[in-house]
Design a protein around this nucleic acid. Structure first.
Lengths: 255, 255
DNA sequence: ACAAAAGTGTTAACATTACACCCATGA
DNA sequence: TCATGGGTGTAATGTTAACACTTTTGT
């Protein structure tokens, strides 16, 4: 489903056929991986989504599991293919298995109109059980899709994610729940920020993740009492107002 | 792997062949379901395990997903097949996908010695990604395996679970972690107790789940402050000592 | 009456909440 | 100098942990 682009119908059809021939040998059938890739950008928690062809709909990045590959490895590889990034924080959170989860009526309409012909025994017509992971992309990391096809990707604010196909909207909701849990339990915030950051930035991150406000003064005390932050010298002398301290996580990023 | 019994080698071989022929049509390939079934019995948290043939090893109950069945439905059906119980609390918690997770060397030794011949393209030689669920069986519920084969099942204290094949020991650990989380967050304890219970029983349950002691007086206050319990009239007049109150959960069992 | 179980009370320590207040900075 | 962001203080409230005390029961 990831090969509908602004190229000719013939090319689409050829690409499909080739992929399908290879896929059934290379990948496990019935199982897929979907990933919810978060970043924190301009005070917003964002999710990476890909345009589905030239429709108004989008989907989450995903892929399949090679026959001799660990499930976790597959998730890392797919992430690498879609973002060019290695060594990213990645965590499994849910496996979606409703029988009709790929039976989105919008999808059928799109395929019919696009002229792509899919036989009923097509690889894509399989029913897939999808193992879902979420990933955290840090402030300094820049993504660059390295796949042969020219995907139209975009970062979408978490509140503004609409019109995803399949059950991908529900999957994002579950990903956010798990992220809310992990940022308290495993303190994974370091993976979404720069190496150093101000207390304000940390607070805005937490507010974006929990979608609610915290009291500035109490938030600061709580974070400092956790004992996971190191206070550095000041910066931010380029801006108006009092220059804030910089902090970093005591133990670097969590892998 | 669930058909090795104390029957003749020929019967084993015949059963295998029949199952394999049916299985590849009936079930999704590459995906399985494993379940960790908990109960609370004689002050112990226990797990249901099945003897693997006549070896000293055991495995978790599991099964496969029918081609037109929801993943959750499959888990419920498998639970029904193994316990005879409907409408059980059931929750997904993890999907195991290491490539070599079924490559247990103990297993190969057993199969070699048992005389069962498995061709390399055998259904069971597939690599399986296993979606794991845990279930809670209440105090009054009695299990009764309804499958055609006469499985040797047993309830095993959670601390005493050893010698499980595959990665089933790790799976139980993850199940317990999720149960610890859910009993606080979703208050699923009602599914492990009788309709009514004493505060002592509730405490022993929590102690079994968290594998640590709580102070009796504080535990009681905390539970009552949650506002989820209803205090009934007394009972336990048959025993020595002061007769305790009975409690029940305000909203019955959680489904 | 007494040993053990069950219920209630009290206190110190700690965390959470909600503000008030002061300081530093660039426009 | 002043608006604003940033740092610290503090009192009210709630939660947790530890322990003392009282009540109830069958033997």
């Amino acid at each position: 489903m990831r090969f509908l682009e602004n190229i000719s119908d013939n090319e689409i059809q050829a690409g499909f056929n080739r992929f399908i021939r290879e896929a059934s040998l290379k990948y496990l059938s019935s199982v897929s991986v979907d990933t919810v890739i978060f970043r924190f950008h301009e005070s917003q928690l964002q999710v990476l989504i890909f345009k589905f062809g030239d429709t108004k709909y989008s989907i989450l990045p995903g892929g399949y599991i090679e026959r001799k590959e660990d499930l976790d490895e597959a998730a890392h590889r797919i992430l690498k293919e879609r973002t060019g990034l290695n060594d990213i924080f990645l965590e499994q959170f849910y496996t979606a298995g409703k029988f009709n989860r790929s039976g989105d009526p919008r999808l059928k309409r799109i395929l019919r109109r696009s002229g792509v012909i899919l036989k009923s025994d097509n690889w894509f017509h399989q029913r897939f059980i999808s193992v879902c992971y979420y990933a955290l992309v840090g402030g300094e990391q820049v993504i660059s899709a390295t796949e042969p096809h020219n995907f139209h990707y975009s970062w979408c604010d978490i509140q503004s994610v609409h019109d995803l196909l399949y059950d991908h909207n529900q999957i994002i909701e579950k990903a956010l729940e798990k992220l809310q849990y992990d940022i308290i339990q495993k303190l994974v915030g370091s993976n979404l920020l720069n190496e150093t950051f101000t207390m304000k930035e940390l607070q805005v991150l937490y507010e974006a993740i929990f979608q609610k406000k915290f009291l500035r003064t109490n938030f600061q005390r709580k974070m400092l009492n956790l004992g996971i932050l190191v206070r550095l010298e000041k910066k931010r002398t380029g801006e108006p107002h009092k220059s804030p301290y910089l902090y970093k996580f005591r133990s670097g990023k969590i892998k």
